[in-house]
Design a protein around this nucleic acid. Structure first.
Lengths: 221, 221
DNA sequence: AAGCCTTTCACCAAAAATGGTGATGTGTAA
DNA sequence: TTACACATCACCATTTTTGGTGAAAGGCTT
């Protein structure tokens, strides 16, 4: 018999966790070691000595700390945790972002339960895994950019936002104009405009509305 | 042995459906007769002769036709279907709305799976059922008896928007420029700009970001 | 020391949004 | 029938945003 694969599940919807558990329990090779209902619980759990999992199944939208933050935490602490992101969004932007943050698999909640099992086995085995719908979305927008094994290109690695960019973003969502932001932060309008442009580029959105929507989706506001 | 309770489940996330099925299958008294992934599938399913269920478990956020629309359909067609809404939102507004549409139970996805079983039995038995967190939300807003601030005036504002203004608003949240909106709606850019100005005035916000944030707050998007 | 990131600012040009005013046709409610 | 709301468009001026390029100072890492 092969070695067991230990899995931790994080999602704010308990019903979904139970569902995943039920699905996973049909496979003898995989065992759930625990679950978390918030991102904070996840990082706390992994900080307790002795707590570990071969694979972490991680929801993106969670209170307290979302999936992005959890991944950032792992990256910062140089914790080499294999993560499968479980998301409602087929959005390529999100897939790219979590990939850049070191996540190894991505399955949408629309996919069938058996896919989770395949994903877990693949990722535990050092491979990457994407559910079908995600794959086709990916191919459509960035054909050929996926690195098959492990590491992601460094150039995009930190498309995370800087402190000041975040400050500007928050004020943008409050309907501030560049002039008002400059005033509020005691900076030049030119500087604020630089941040705006930087934000647009990093978040790959078209305009201030896109920035605001991003902020909402990621619970920055 | 009691008569079996037949249940139909509707949710766009297959994993969640499987979870619910797994949970429900632990109870001998309840049996799943089928499931749907969109609201359209639900109404179609119930239109097929012979297809029926004692209880329908219905997600609010679904593509093609959302939960609200399904409930409205049942009301319009005078179909007396017992429905339990399963939602991510603890929002009192939503609870009120689905109640008005004839829904008999409401459980949040945050609640444990066993609650579903209790809910199904209660509702099948002609009772109402609300999961604990929903109940406390309800109590909070009722005992505070001041209708949640912002709600009433907002609803007033929302109702004052015309069809076309709403159309434009939706496209604005998708990062469309006026030119793109004009193109999409086959109208003049001048017309779109008129709607933008009208929206700014009616919703009392300063710019497109304000419009987008309003749309988010009021779940227009 | 060399290299990168962040923060800060400037200048220029084009595109877009905002503010105001006004006008037409259509339908509907008082 | 009159009045009002809605959908549609035009023209104007001003402000704001977006896009591109560049650059200097300070910090951190290797």
């Amino acid at each position: 018999m092969k070695k067991k694969i230990y899995v931790h599940v994080a999602d704010d919807h308990k019903i979904l966790i139970e569902g995943i558990m039920a699905v996973i329990n049909t496979d003898k090779e995989i065992e759930i070691t625990g679950y978390s209902l918030t991102g904070q619980e996840v990082v706390d759990w992994f900080h307790v000595k002795g707590n570990k999992a071969d694979v972490l199944i991680l929801d993106i939208t969670m209170p307290v700390l979302d999936g992005f933050e959890v991944l950032k935490h792992f990256a910062k602490e140089k914790i080499d945790q294999k993560v499968i992101v479980l998301s409602s969004y087929d959005d390529v932007k999100i897939v790219q972002e979590v990939l850049n943050l070191g996540c190894k698999g991505y399955i949408s909640k629309n996919s069938a339960g058996e896919h989770i099992i395949n994903a877990i086995k693949a990722v535990a085995n050092g491979e990457q895994y994407f559910s079908n719908d995600i794959q086709s979305s990916l191919l459509k927008s960035i054909s050929g950019q996926i690195v098959p094994k492990g590491d992601v290109p460094d150039k995009f690695l930190l498309n995370s936002l800087t402190e000041r960019e975040l400050d500007v973003l928050k004020l943008i969502t409050k309907e501030y104009s560049s002039i008002e932001i400059a005033d509020a932060m005691s900076l030049s309008t030119n500087t604020i405009d630089t941040y705006r442009k930087s934000l647009l580029k990093k978040l790959k959105v078209k305009n201030a509305v896109g920035l605001a929507m991003y902020a909402v989706k990621n619970k920055i506001v």
